[in-house]
Design a protein around this nucleic acid. Structure first.
Lengths: 216, 216
DNA sequence: GAGCTTCAACCGACCAGTTGGTAGAGAAAG
DNA sequence: CTTTCTCTACCAACTGGTCGGTTGAAGCTC
């Protein structure tokens, strides 16, 4: 099987990538965290691109498993979307994984090795196809609406979630900021006849207060 | 007033930051592009944090000017939002400035110097307060709706736009992908009585195709 | 105007520290 | 005896940043 060190290197790299992206972490950061020399990391992952691609590949695999589990465990399409949002809410609140690696690396694409870019593209494809499937099912069951088609609707929801993560990070990793935006994006997909299940649970409105520049 | 070199350094730094973020560009990249020595850059901007903060400060100033000009030049609130989206559409199409620096740096926040983080926060505040003002005016004129309040609505629209930029970058800086998402976010704010001005101009639906499948 | 000072702009050379990556050898285990 | 894993030591290239010094225009005095 895969060695213990191998997995621990991936863990450390993932943690660093979530908070710093691709360009701002180094082998020297990982080595002491795992308790091995730099050369050991190179033994398992010859180049930095290999390492980052491996982190993303594992991340995608876990993500797909989690998300497919959600699909079978939760029958109601609305509840599925809410569980998905809730997952990220928890991640941000618990401060482990306070950002989607795929989305983070997407912004760095022009300075990323090809192998990594491919994984990022793959992640976006994974996600939008899952959201598409959930929405399509929701439309069929009359619980969701997608007037412009399921594909664009999924793309829009995904964009809202990513934008919400960004806003939350700007607000100091505030899960309330994420929720306020992401949950409203889901609410907009609800059909009018969905009064019983998800009664627009009127969140408080956490405005993003500024750094230095908010005028009186 | 300010020297020519000073401005050219800011230009080069801005260009590099748009495509690479903060951590993946260096003084050595800028120097040859401007045609000066590294030491000259340090003369104008003692540290990298100073340089990045100055780039952001100028970016914000230009942005505020542009956006306030839009506010006075365009009277219809819906047209204002469409002009704002159209601006980014053009930026992506022309391939200069294919991303908002503020949003890009926001994802790097945990690894950014304080002075830069403050500018990023400031930019988000600038933007959300402008969008808030446009939406509020639109609501007053009966052209837009903001059931959850103007602040959250503005925050949501901003998130959609940022998410759309991300999706466009993943799709290889495709302006059509940006438009499909961002324009739909605006459409959702329209009141039902807005059939005359903005007749839901049924965009083609460019799906983000996955993996390596994008043509050259 | 000559002679002097001041000062921002600029430069090449240099600095210590870090980057991703390599060489070769020692364990350990089948 | 090979394979896998790990180590120390090393590498050239690059990082942000400093150093002392040159240029040239502006300001001042006589």
């Amino acid at each position: 099987m895969v060695s213990d060190t191998y997995e621990k290197i991936l863990d450390a790299a993932e943690r660093l990538m979530v908070s710093r992206g691709y360009n701002a972490f180094s082998y020297a950061d990982i080595a002491p965290e795992v308790g091995v020399g730099k050369a050991t990391i190179h033994h398992h992952f010859p180049t930095k691109a290999d390492l980052a691609a491996a982190v993303l590949a594992r991340y995608r695999k876990n993500n797909r498993r989690h998300v497919e589990g959600l699909f079978t465990a939760v029958i109601d399409p609305v509840a599925r979307l809410e569980a998905y949002i809730g997952f990220w809410e928890d991640c941000i609140r618990r401060q482990d994984m306070p950002f989607c690696i795929g989305a983070l690396l997407a912004s760095e694409i022009p300075s990323l090795p090809d192998a990594v870019v491919q994984q990022v593209r793959g992640h976006f494809a994974d996600l939008s196809s899952w959201l598409g499937a959930v929405i399509e099912d929701g439309v069929a069951k009359g619980r969701l609406k997608a007037e412009q088609g399921t594909a664009v609707t999924a793309e829009c929801l995904m964009a809202s979630v990513h934008g919400a993560m960004l806003a939350a990070r700007v607000a100091g990793s505030d899960p309330a900021v994420f929720s306020a935006i992401a949950r409203r994006a889901v609410d907009q997909l609800l059909t009018a006849a969905t009064g019983d299940q998800s009664p627009a649970e009127s969140q408080a409105v956490p405005t993003v207060t500024a750094g230095g520049a908010r005028g009186p």
